[in-house]
Design a binder for these strands. Structure first.
Lengths: 261, 261
DNA sequence: CGAGGCATTGATCTCAGTCAACCAGCGTGG
DNA sequence: CCACGCTGGTTGACTGAGATCAATGCCTCG
């Protein structure tokens, strides 16, 4: 087996030790944006302290959620925009047959619930995957604040545009026909999002189950599993449980000719 | 063949006659929002004339595009938000292997190019599918206008949220595993969007090629074709070329247990 | 009227879904 | 403390849906 690269005891140990501890930001105690550890991610880059000050008036609430706990539910009245401070969440929609369909995954620094704005009602259900801290931003108050501070006014548009950009690249991802392509694109998307947060793009924990990955990608659990083993045999990744190390990022990209920007 | 329902000469004729002519809005000659025929679609419902007035200051430009013509390209600097006034467009991304991947379809009343806001550069290419009229909204000027008119201020957020809602439902659509499910969901999505415009939800023209449908849905052209024939044999649809009539909307929905809201 | 693009259909083969067994980790409770 | 059962993950054998290859038909446009 020339190409085969099984995870050594050592690498496995690395995976387990690093994944959750080293990359997750330290818990935040303060609810104000100035001191929030995901601030730079959460808010579009070039905001000065000047711009941030009005946001202090929002008096944000940060809540903790345990894995599986619902953050907001489909049908709830839209009152807050939710910013993930730490941990990870999923948003889902219920299908007619009762099974849930994953609509997206959200890491620290991501927003959730923006879809509620248009109709005044949420159209998805958000659930914590990890122990997660989520910042509740009261929308009405945000509107009031941004109205009077011109510099902070583009904030929402910026944030929403980012969401649209990401959704777009996910739509392209899901337009791929073959399971390995989709899964590779999915891993690369996660990798890139980790990089954007200053975390390692090559080694991280998958906060979601195989079933959830499959639901999102439109492929079955077994195929997710098999394809991951395939990637491992090809030497693209090493893994241990939910920990993943991308050992050959370019190879992975090249093998499935993707370009998720 | 008990269930078989081939398109009669008569129904075919209906399809051809109605599809493009009856449903498309009449061409707009005026560039101001007050008199634009897609105004109610383009702008969130409850805007009064009062609210609309400031928008006149935008002095919008409407441009015509012929089928295949590029409206904006991946990499272009973000200057405009594009509102489709008539016709239909697609947005695409180029994959590494050079083939293009369809990221979305846009009907009259839809916006395009919102993804450019975040980075200041467009991340997709927009192309006309029909003869299309597109309204170019200069973003900087829009920001200036909305800054001084509080009622018009939520406009952007509203519009972007709608985009996010729709993207979300498309993500769910693409998370479906089987080709007939996806195609059914796709048709129902189109149907619903037609209904939202006051057009017939049961009879319309597909402005895109089978290949483009396939690219978007992640299935091959042949499968698109075969699945459409399947739908026809089951009595769910009738079709002639790019014209479609949904003869059994509930049946289509029920058979593939979807609930695209 | 002919050419070329688009759509449909058929035959074959491959990949992913299905069904089922098995394993590892974990919390519960004896 | 270990036995137990449960959930989540992996693997195998088989089947079926969809991709591929190829041919034909249809419509549009020059």
């Amino acid at each position: 087996m020339p190409k085969l690269l099984p995870p050594t005891k050592h690498s496995v140990h690395l995976l387990r030790g690093q994944a959750p501890a080293a990359h997750a930001p330290a818990p935040c105690t303060n609810s104000h944006c100035e001191s929030c550890c995901v601030g730079a991610l959460c808010l579009p880059g070039a905001l000065s302290d000047e711009d941030l000050r009005p946001l202090a008036a929002l008096s944000l609430v940060t809540r903790r959620f345990v894995p599986g706990e619902t953050i907001y539910a489909d049908g709830d009245r839209f009152r807050f925009i939710y910013a993930v401070r730490s941990g990870a969440c999923k948003t889902t929609m219920l299908r007619a047959d009762g099974r849930e369909q994953v609509a997206g995954f959200h890491l620290a620094g991501d927003f959730m619930g923006l879809e509620g704005l248009a109709e005044g009602v949420h159209g998805t259900t958000a659930t914590a995957l990890d122990d997660a801290q989520v910042c509740l931003i009261p929308y009405q108050r945000l509107v009031a604040v941004t109205a009077s501070y011109p510099n902070a006014k583009d904030l929402m548009a910026h944030v929403m545009s980012q969401e649209i950009v990401h959704d777009g690249s996910l739509l392209v991802l899901l337009g791929l026909t073959e399971a390995p392509q989709r899964l590779a694109a999915f891993l690369l998307d996660l990798s890139q999002r980790h990089a954007a947060r200053g975390w390692s793009p090559r080694e991280f924990r998958l906060p979601m189950s195989r079933a959830e990955i499959g639901s999102f990608l439109g492929i079955k659990v077994e195929t997710v599993s098999r394809t991951l083993t395939l990637f491992e045999r090809r030497g693209f990744i090493a893994r241990r449980g939910r920990g993943v190390r991308i050992t050959d990022l370019d190879g992975l990209r090249a093998a499935y000719d993707l370009r998720i920007r």
